[in-house]
Amino acid sequence: MLRNTIRNCSSKIATAIKSSPRGFAATPTETADAVVVGAAGLAVARELALRGREVLVIESAGTFGTGTSSRNSEVIHAGIYYPAKSLKARFCVRGKELLYKYCCDRGIPHKQLGKLIVATSVAEIPKLENLMRFGIANGVEDLRMMEGSDAMRMEPELQCVKALLSPSTGIVDSHSFMLSLLGEAENCKATLSYNTTVVGGHIEGDRLHLHISESKELANNIVDSPVLPQLILIPRLVINSAGLSAVPLARSHLIYPMPEDGGIGVHVTIDLSGLVKFGPDVEWISGPDDISSFLNRFDYSVSSDRSARFYPEIRKYFRNLKDGCLEPGYSGIRAKLCGPKQPPQDFMIQGEDVHGVPGLINLFGIESPGLTSSLAIAEYIVSKL
């Protein structure tokens, strides 16, 4: 059983502080070429390192992939759900192609299982047909509409009146994928600094100055008191890919999350060990303080009584699901850029033309299909530099 809590961020993104703060005269200063904030940017770090950049990855946790990157369904998405010409559609379709090739070439565990999107009533068939049109417009060329009887022959426990088959959907071992990205980045001389947090920044002489502190200093910080940097880092290029803390790092405000229709429902996935998972559902959380975001201080526990919400949803298509057969799994948090009753937002890749800060690229709202899209996002960013 998978719970997915959602953090939302306002669509108004503030830029880094544009005045030089006083009182840092005694703080050590270092220069750098390319800095990637957050190990969620491993694909970008690898791509930059392969192109000969000297890359430093700054990660607030003790290792990589402890947040959103490791708390997802590990699905390789086909590119069906997203509006045509959106970044999500473009990067998902391209990223799927790159990811399958990457995994095949390096022996990373993955399977191209295919996916059935099912209509459990006649009233849902028009929605299914719309999804097919979306997918075709996005360049997903292998979609096939099926009668319910054909789908139920494929999955005998399934109940539906019609289904959309997506053969190119799959699953991947996300940890092995991230470990491979890390290894290739390090082989090209990229450096990772764990337990290190970017706590702020300022502009001085047309260069972005990052305020760096050990994460333990941030953890011990008194609420509402400023965190003094232990290092000022002056890079030529900054990629803000800090995941859930990317927006707090850029100084925007948090708001309450999206309504239920922001998700895609309680669906079925299978992991590489053959275990069946149902989810996610959605639980709203209000925005914690910025320090909690930086240090990934979220409650990821899953209460066993949440299963009561899952059974009626699952039985719409698996009617024979027995009481008491679900067990709590894990939860994750999505980085959302849309507010209550607002339509889903696209990925936001924000450069100097938007915020006016030289050498800074912000990655906001990299939720699903972020894992599938990661190599394509990295390819896009580096091609623009």
Rank of each mutant, 00 (worst) to 15 (best):
N4W: 06
I13W: 15
A14W: 12
T29Q: 13
V35T: 02
L42M: 09
A45T: 01
A45Q: 03
R46Y: 10
L48V: 08
A49I: 05
R51L: 06
V55L: 05
V55R: 11
V55I: 05
I58L: 15
A61G: 02
A61D: 13
S70C: 02
I76A: 02
H77Y: 01
H77P: 00
A78P: 01
L87M: 13
K88R: 08
K88P: 02
A89N: 13
F91C: 09
F91G: 01
C92G: 02
E97T: 00
L98K: 10
Y102S: 08
Y102V: 00
D105Q: 15
I108P: 01
H110K: 01
Q112R: 07
K115A: 08
A123E: 13
E129P: 04
F134C: 15
G135M: 09
G135V: 08
G135C: 12
G135N: 15
E141V: 04
M145E: 04
R153V: 04
S166P: 03
H175L: 08
S176A: 14
M178H: 10
S180D: 12
L182I: 04
A185M: 07
A190F: 11
S193A: 12
N195F: 08
T196R: 07
G200E: 14
H202M: 00
I203T: 06
G205N: 12
L210S: 15
L210Y: 09
H211F: 01
E214V: 01
P226V: 07
S241M: 05
G243S: 12
I255W: 04
M258I: 03
P259M: 11
G263Y: 01
V266W: 12
H267N: 03
V282F: 08
S286W: 00
P288F: 07
S292M: 13
S292R: 15
F298R: 12
S304Q: 09
D305F: 14
R306M: 11
K316W: 06
F318P: 13
R319H: 15
R319Y: 11
L321I: 11
L326I: 10
G329S: 14
G329C: 02
I333C: 14
C338P: 00
K341Y: 14
Q342G: 07
G351D: 10
G351W: 00
H355Q: 01
I366V: 14
S368W: 01
G370Y: 08
S373F: 09
S383H: 02
